[in-house]
């Protein structure tokens, strides 16, 4: 119980700060909206295959995650609150709280992205449950990898553009599975029947990344 309340406190602190400034969430929404509009203008009137639709959706989500979530730990450094946080709660609770907050942001981005995509690119979703499961599992893996790497780049000197460089090579297995599972949820897809192995991969990826992060986080955090 103690561990959970510590993690919850970190999450609550981040949420409260976010609600005060609304910087990250506004930036994420604007990024998703403008990049989706760009995509739809660039494609024009042509019909886009479902493979292409799910690939575009996930590329937008990936880029917005690498831009919007990278500030998680950098902002602590800038505010000078790292020492307070290190003294107050153990590293694993800090990681869990930050991960929960990033996951929350990413799920919001997913909702907005799918919603706007449905209008702009005529996304025909037939298996809503499958799509929701895919997005939730995929976002968990993505949020875990991003949280860990944003802790790493907070230790570097000019952190800004480094996160995508570190993040994208690691996300290849996630991207392959999530795009094919998303495709299955759209019209003409195979639905649940063919998505078992993709969903297993997504769950396993999230599990492995979270485990590795918890094991390695203290080496980055306690400097």
């Amino acid at each position: 119980m103690n561990w959970l309340s510590g993690a919850w406190a970190v999450f609550e602190k981040d949420l409260r700060l976010e609600l005060r400034s609304r910087y990250a969430i506004n930036m994420l929404i604007m990024f998703v909206l403008s990049s989706l509009l760009l995509v739809s203008f660039a494609i024009g009137q042509d019909a886009v295959s479902t493979k292409m639709q799910s690939a575009l959706l996930w590329i937008v989500i990936l880029f917005s995650a690498s831009i919007g979530l990278g500030r998680t730990f950098v902002s602590e450094e800038e505010r000078g609150t790292v020492l307070i946080l290190q003294l107050s709660v153990p590293g694993s609770q800090v990681f869990a709280g930050k991960l929960a907050f990033n996951y929350f942001l990413l799920v919001c981005v997913n909702l907005i992205g799918v919603f706007v995509f449905t209008f702009l690119l005529n996304l025909d979703i037939i298996h809503i449950g499958l799509l929701a499961t895919t997005l939730l599992l995929g976002s968990l893996g993505l949020a875990a990898a991003t949280t860990m790497l944003s802790a790493i780049i907070a230790r570097t000197t000019n952190a800004g553009p480094l996160l995508p460089v570190l993040l994208f090579p690691l996300l290849f297995p996630l991207l392959l599975s999530v795009v094919s599972a998303c495709e299955n949820a759209l019209i003409g897809g195979f639905g649940w029947a063919q998505s078992g192995s993709d969903l297993t991969t997504l769950a396993a990826f999230a599990g492995v990344v979270i485990t590795a992060s918890v094991l390695l986080f203290d080496f980055v955090w306690n400097d």
Binding site: L149, I152, R155, A159, L170, L171, F219
Partner: peptide, 26 residues
């Protein structure tokens, strides 16, 4: 690239090792 963004040898050693192992798990 990550190594070149870190100046202090001890910190660079630890952070780079974490990234190397983290990448190896995926």
């Amino acid at each position: 690239v990550l190594r070149s963004a870190l100046d202090d040898p001890d910190r660079r050693a630890r952070i780079a090792a974490v990234y190397n192992l983290f990448a190896a798990t995926t």
